Amino acid sequence: MIRIENVSTVFGTGDSRFTAVDDVSLEIPRGSIQGIIGFSGAGKSTLLRNINLLERPTSGRILVDGVDVTALDDAALRATRHGIGMIFQHFNLLNNRTAAQNVELSLKFSGVKNAAERRRRALEALAVVDLSDKAGAYPAKLSGGQKQRVAIARALATEPKVLLCDEPTSAVDPRTTASVLQYLSDVNARFGITIVVVTHEMNVIKAIADNVAVMEDGRVVEQFALTDLQQPGFSPATSIGRYLISDEISLDRADRKPAGRRLEGAHRA
């Protein structure tokens, strides 16, 4: 469904030149949920934005449903993007528009000219994420989880084949994270939409993804299926992979010295 071939993305020139994505190749099967994980600065969000050319790669090709999007002219690219929905970390809702109106905007931009049709499809999309009762609510009256569900509805309204999710749970609490991931999983199962999720949280990947690509310094350093994690004795091949799948927080406390008295003295000062 999505084929990334030797993609590199370079920002700046000369001494300020920075390679955000470095010769990445990745194949994402139709109807699957692909996780891309790595620390901040690993290049994962840039790679995600390469898929719909919000960031155009410096070199390489990206094929979506057999179409080389890197070879399209502006008009053809706009049309292709209608089939690629995107969910952002911080919702990107307009505060002066209701939930339904925010969803309708995506349909207006995708060329649906009939206002009644836009309204119908917006309400259908909100129903998918169980927000029919919030259609007339403004973002200020919605919780973080509800805002993200409106963002999911907005992405679904254009009936995409692909859904790109850039840190979709980073701005919500753990309980809301589970709810958002459940809706994404349901959308995948119900509509067969291919989903790509970028995150630095392994618990998100474990909950929803079929396959994992681990990124470090702009490169995909490891790939494995989530089912591999359930196999006795399986361990990621790279140190970054092993660290990311660990649920533990480990601190180096060897050189730590008691600081209580020093802090007390600081308060007196």
Rank of each mutant, 00 (worst) to 15 (best):
M1S: 15
S8C: 07
T9G: 05
F11W: 13
G12E: 07
D23Q: 11
E27C: 06
I36P: 00
G41F: 09
K44M: 07
N50Q: 03
E55T: 15
R56I: 03
R61W: 12
G66P: 04
L77W: 06
T80Q: 15
H82T: 14
M86K: 03
A99C: 05
A100D: 00
F109D: 03
E117F: 00
R118P: 00
A135I: 01
A140H: 13
K141F: 04
Q146C: 05
V150Q: 05
A153P: 05
A155K: 05
E159D: 13
L163F: 01
D166I: 09
V172K: 09
R175H: 09
T176Q: 10
Q182M: 07
L184F: 10
S185E: 12
S185L: 13
V187F: 06
F191E: 05
T194M: 09
T194S: 11
V197C: 01
E201L: 04
K206I: 06
D217N: 14
G218M: 05
R219H: 08
V220R: 09
E222R: 00
L226Q: 08
S235M: 13
S246M: 03
L251D: 04
R253C: 13
A254D: 08
D255C: 04
P258G: 09
R261H: 10
R262L: 14
A266H: 09
